[in-house]
Design a protein around this nucleic acid. Structure first.
Lengths: 328, 328
DNA sequence: CTGAAAGCGCTTACAG
DNA sequence: CTGAAAGCGCTTACAG
């Protein structure tokens, strides 16, 4: 598809088509319209030497989550192996700049995109229209069929953490969950329930508390649990920050960890090993997940058919010193 | 820069250069080498339309330092304000891929570069040859005059931290320093000495210990200090990770913080507020530093004369609960 | 407003 | 292995 072909099919000269494409003046409105119609009809792309940009876009909503670095490192590692640059964007909560952002992405013509942010359907279809494939990292909402993603086995992780506590003799095991709409947390909750039911333990309504995925959220939820009429002997938090909040609450209430209260987190952030006592937590292989997401995205960007559209990598329980056999 | 120019300067024909660029056969090895050298030398890019790439490169040695995210956020904020994409690279300790990396950077033709890594003089001159300006973030080694940089007032921060401890009545104040070659740590050390001397306090040789900028380094150094014949009543660590190591050592030795031992860190990472007790530390305005570095780099990239080549932003002491008036 | 002609940067086919 | 020549897709300057 060349401008010569467009010219021939419209019955004008090559220079005229050139002017239209480059927005030059000196073309009659009617001629311009006919040429534009032909360009659209034949799907001409400006001399598009389909050169690869050798860029992968990595998009976050918020980067202050402590696991951002791990994801970045994984994406970076795979991208560098394939000699591709990583363009990083933090959309921010306001989302004011999202409109500009998508324009800039399209200007950059990246080979593909890995998104930790929840892109709207409008943005997804804009990317699809430009042929820019994308992979969703750890989806927090239900995705339409066929949208590629890489996640972790949250349900199995929740189950393993709960079973670990049950194995230590705990019976009143509380869960600090998060907003229902976060898919991974719902899976952790179901894993918890599954393990409890398998052990024949009742899941009292007052054992499951919702809280934000932050230190403050975890502390408030733990205080509520520990000050209740029948406090739990173990708390499973939905992430490590919440678990740090549980530590703070235990200190306030005067409980020792793990002697009086066992605590399990989720994620295995660097801080998990640094807090006192070191935190037992469900390890999420963030770096490997990021590597896999990038590999998939780059393969799609090269036009390869994906062997599978969705992958979940295994979580593993990392036992440290915040859990102990229940006494009394 | 055209292949005709490369051909003329190498003394071969245009078709020959074309073959080299496109990896075709039928070119003598020696000829190929000469042409490739010329291509590198003149920074030829295939059909390079000298459009701005609207990219800024951000380079780290290692991203696992906890302050990486803060720097990224600052760079991202300023870049997005100017509609520029951030390309992030982690060189890794091996540095094996540095050669490839610089080639890739040159291919991308970024408008400018912000480096947290220590680039060698060779790389710096390659960038200069292509007219890609760069700004060094928090230089750890002495830079030649005229190399733009953004840092923090490390000397003043070390002084402020030490004065804070002196003001609380401490006299035996130890410093956990780092390798001498790290400029910022040497400045912190001198700030410490300056404050000690101003207060007429002796700086015993056994009060200053060198250790890696890590939790393990801090712990080992603190154990050495606390088990010595005349243990200090306060320890100033060269970063927050070392301070966390001091916490661990205090626990081992059976000292309470801050009742028996005061601790001050440096950086003010997110963990500083999360540890128990919350850590008094010197706040380094990493986000603002990154914003300033990027603003400077982008201005240089637009060809503007820099109003100044080096900037140091002020550190501030954040007093939390790891320091207390010395008793006894 | 239009397009013939010249030109640009590059590639290809082929003669030496 | 090398490069003169032809050709390709496109743009520019300009005659009508």
């Amino acid at each position: 598809m060349t401008i010569a072909y467009i010219a021939a099919s419209t019955g004008v000269s090559v220079p005229t088509v050139s002017k239209v494409i480059n927005g030059r003046s000196g073309v009659a409105a009617e001629t311009r319209a006919r040429v534009e119609a032909a360009i659209r009809e034949f799907g001409y792309q400006r001399s598009a030497p389909p050169t690869r940009s050798n860029l992968v876009e990595l998009v976050f909503d918020q980067l202050d989550d402590m696991w951002g670095v791990q994801i970045i490192r994984g994406v970076e590692r795979m991208a560098r192996q394939q000699r591709v640059g990583v363009v990083l964007t933090e959309l921010g909560s306001g989302r004011g700049g999202t409109r500009y952002w998508i324009d800039d992405v399209i200007d950059r013509r990246p080979d593909c995109l890995v998104t930790v942010a929840q892109l709207g359907e409008e943005q997804r279809s804009q990317l699809r229209a430009r042929g820019i494939p994308f992979v969703v990292f750890d989806p927090t909402v239900e995705l339409p069929d066929g949208v590629p993603f890489v996640g972790a086995t949250n349900w199995a992780g929740g189950r393993a953490a709960t079973r670990h506590l049950i194995g230590q003799g705990h019976r009143r095991i509380a869960l600090i969950s998060s907003a229902d709409r976060i898919l991974s947390c719902r899976a952790r909750l179901d894993g918890y329930r599954s393990a409890m039911e398998a052990a024949g333990l009742p899941v009292d309504g007052d054992l499951v508390v919702q809280a934000g995925l932050s230190v403050d959220g975890g502390r408030a939820a733990a205080l509520e649990l520990l000050r209740g009429p029948q406090p739990p002997t173990a708390i499973f938090a939905s992430n490590d920050l919440q678990a740090v909040g549980v530590y703070q609450a235990a200190r306030v209430v005067g409980l020792r960890i793990p002697a009086d209260l066992s605590v399990v987190g989720f994620d295995d952030l660097p801080i998990a090993a640094l807090v006192d006592p070191p935190l037992t937590t469900v390890h999420q292989p963030l770096v490997e997940m990021a590597v896999a997401a990038t590999e998939l995205a780059l393969a799609l960007g090269r036009g390869e058919r994906a062997p599978r559209t969705g992958i979940e990598l295994a979580t593993t329980l990392t036992v440290r010193q915040s859990t102990a056999t229940r006494v009394g």
